[in-house]
Structures are given as C-alpha cells and as structure tokens.
Design a binder for these strands. Structure first.
Lengths: 245, 245
DNA sequence: GTTATGCCTTGATCTTTGTCAAACAGAAAA
DNA sequence: TTTTCTGTTTGACAAAGATCAAGGCATAAC
C-alpha cells in the first residue's frame, strides 16, 4: 500500500514512526455507489480519509427527505472531530457517491498519538475551526438567502475553482439540489430561469456562464466578509514539509 | 477581581501559574443592552468569556435581517475557535442582550500557554467538537423542519431545562423568533395556534404547557439520535478538580 | 433496434412563511 | 395621569417553494 496519509492535512505533522502507528489501526476499503459507511446514531469509534471517489454526509428527516450536509472529496478526512466526545455517535449518515476508496482509523489509537504531539493537536484545531466557520456560513446561506442565491453562489464557486466560464456540474443535479436544500424541481426551474435570462446556457450537466456579473449580483457576493476558507495556522516556526512519497 | 476563570470549561485544565498568565492579557468590561463587542469581518485578536448577562451572536443579511446564531450564557466562552486561523476574522457580530459583563483574552498569549499543555488542547478540541455537533443539528433543524417544529422543540427543551410545565421564555419573543429563523409575526401566530389547540396557555412571557405529548409529537422529537449535547472527554486519568475559589 | 430504468423537466396547484400596515399593550418617562 | 416608546398581535395579501402528476430523454439492458 503506497498511500502516504500525510497528504491529508490532519496527518501532515506526523513523523514516520507516528504514521506507522496510525496505519497499524487502519482499514482500507472500497465502496460501491450508494453503499453505507455508517448511519446517524451509530457509535463512532473510527474516522475516515477519502482516497478516491466522493462521500456524501447527510441526515434524514422523519418523512424520508435527506439533507446533504457535505460532500467529502479525496484527500479529506471526516468524522475526526467526534473522537473528543465521551460516547461518540455519528451525527450524520455517510455513503459513497459513486465508487469510492476509503481508509478508516481507530479513534483511541489516534488520541494516544495526539497526546504526544502538540503540533498535530494544533492542526486538528485549525481544521475544526475551519469547519465551524464553514457551518456558520452554511446556516447563513440557509436562512438569509433564497434558493436562487444559493444556486448562483454554488455556480460561481465552481466557476472560480475551474477557472473557466464553461464547466461540468460536480455531481448529479438531484444530489446538488439536496446539497443546496431544495427540491430537484426547484433546482431545475431556477436553471431554466437563468437560461431564459441569458445568464447561462446548459446542456445536460455542462454549464456555460454568459453573464458573470449578473450571476454574481444574484448571488449577493458583494457581502462584506470573505467567503474563501481560511488556511489554518500551524505553530509558527514549526512548518513541516509534506512528504508526498 | 475574585473571578476564577476556571469555571469555564476551556480554562478548567489550567494551573495557578497558567491562569495568572492568561489573566495578564485579559480585559474586563461591562456592556449596555445592544452595545457591540465586535462586528462580522473585524480582525479577531481576542476571545471572550461571559461573566454576566447574555451575548447575542448574529449575522446580518444584505436586506438588514439578522439571524441569531447563538445566545451565549454566563460561564461560556466564544470566538475562541478563531485563534487557530492565520488571519482570524470574526464570522459573526456580537452584542450584549441586556447589560452584560465580559472578560476578553489575547489569542496569542493563550496559544503560547496552549502549546505547553496537551490537556488544555484536548479540552478545546472537545468544546469545538460539541459546537460542530450543535451546528450540524442546527442545519438539520433549519432545513428539515418547519417553523412550528422548531418552536415546539425549543419549548420542550426549555421545559426540560426548568423541569416544570410552567416557565418563562428565556428572552424577548422577537429575539427568540430571530434565533429560530422566523419573523416575529410567525412566532406569534404559532403560539396563538398552539393556544387554540389547548396545547399550551400563554400570558405575556409565561408559558404553561397543557399537553406535553402533543407538543412532543409536533416537535418530531421521536427521532433516533440523542439531542442532548455530549460531554467532551478529557484525557483519561487526568481529571483535574475545578477550583471555584 | 427495442425496451426498460433512472433522472430530469414541466405544468398546475397548495402550503407555508414573509410583507405591509394598523391596532394594541405594557412599561417607562414626562 | 398622560404620553411615548417599544414590542407584540392581527389581518389581508404576496411570494417562494413544495407537492403531485405527467411527460421527456438519456443510457444501459435485452
């Protein structure tokens, strides 16, 4: 297995020996589309690193609707914050979005390593701090913004990520709709509406943005605060080069 | 000043000397109702501990609406997660809800102490983990639930806190409405609706619950996962008695 | 090629919540 | 006591999304 887990920010401060220790308690697994890693309410003894594919984190309401909390991309960890709880329980369910490759780690083992490395602690705190910020932003979006605003903001982010005004949607439309807390029908109607206003053109999952400025104003992105995620800071003077093997 | 900051979970693992160090960088202040501590987008060099009164954390949308993210009660810290960012910026605004007494602390100084104490790090991670959980729950509420559901859940929580079916609302109705992401008018109408259904009786800010079961079913509280916040765990075998002076 | 399957779109309608405006109530100030 | 202020309630109405039902369109299976 020639994967260096230090590609993940969480592990980047570990030395060779610590990596070995962590890996001892790890399991690698492949998951088919829709296969479940864990469910809301399960006991949380392990956390995860996505190697390939995407993982959908979601909650289900009593009437069967699901709200996607996050879609985890390769190189990122999730559920690691839970290890600091006394009786950790997953607050979300997780399943593969398409085929995915995942490594899982034992919480207890990792806590032991943590207790010997302040630097790793600092990194984790940085990561958690970022997530907190992201979630606050999310609440903001959900309450202060309309469905159109949310969709436009998502398109703009995607556009900036790719660096082109022409791009492919990062997931199926139905999935994106759930991520943005709206029904597929609403998603569809908004896209259609943007098309008739010549703000963009769509062809299946391909998007071509025609009027970026209009799109931007619809997304209310003139707001005061920065939207880009902050980089967490490590202990100053202790930056450790990331070994990618 | 005879306040022992170790009443706050965040500081509970500090020894005498560390407390002294932290206090050196602290400022104590009193705030009048509505007075601002900081605004969304301000540089975040300090974090805070509420000694008395309540602090409202909120965001404002472009049209002037405000969404209350949290109401911080005495004994609790806030904005401490930001200190792990490189260029920390408050993601919310904070102001006093009624007269309040606050201590603020310098981030850098606290980070220095942190770098010498794994146990304090663990506590912070525990706190942050709890907050993450709380925010996920919040997103859940906002998207999966209706306004009525949210209000009923809030009433039930309050009722369980107090331990009686008769209690006072913890803040002005308008404030609670904002906290629950609805307009005061909607809040009012829902309460009135619950009254006509004989589920509860209201007299200004006093609530008398008549039919707990019905209220509970309206709040959809039969869900699988526990709603009570988890206690974060400290490093095992290192519990430190909390000195309340 | 034909059929099935899953996803997406479209239209009609309904529900929930927000908006605006006015009335009201209680507490504090004059 | 009267006035004023602020917060709450109420009603009529508008708007955003959800829901339900049907149709379209692709890709994979037969």
């Amino acid at each position: 297995m020639n994967i260096d887990i230090r590609m993940a920010h969480l592990f980047s401060a570990l030395n060779e020996d610590q990596v070995r220790q962590v890996m001892e308690s790890s399991h690698i697994g492949t998951f088919k589309d829709g296969e479940s890693l864990f469910e809301t309410g399960d006991e949380a003894n392990r956390f995860f690193l996505v190697i390939g594919g995407q993982i959908k984190l979601f909650r289900v309401s009593s009437n069967g609707d699901q709200k996607i909390i996050d879609i985890i991309q390769p190189g990122n960890t999730f559920a690691e914050a839970l290890m600091f709880m006394e009786h950790p329980i997953y607050p979300v369910s997780a399943e593969a979005l398409g085929p995915a490759k995942i490594i899982s780690f034992d919480n207890r083992r990792f806590l032991q390593i943590l207790s010997g490395s302040i630097d790793v602690c600092f990194r984790i705190m940085g990561t958690m701090s970022q997530r907190l910020r992201g979630l606050i932003k999310e609440i903001d979006d959900l309450t202060l913004q309309s469905a159109t605003t949310r969709l436009c903001a998502m398109l703009l982010h995607r556009m900036e990520d790719v660096g082109q005004d022409h791009f492919t949607l990062p997931a199926a439309k139905g999935v994106l709709a759930a991520r943005l807390s709206m029904k597929p029908e609403t998603f569809s109607r908004i896209l259609q509406n943007l098309s008739t206003k010549d703000i963009l053109r769509t062809k299946s999952n391909e998007i071509q943005v025609l009027d970026e400025n209009l799109l931007r104003s619809l997304a209310h992105l003139e707001s005061i605060y920065g939207l880009e995620p902050e980089k967490p800071c490590a202990l100053k003077g202790q930056s450790i080069p990331i070994d990618l093997n």
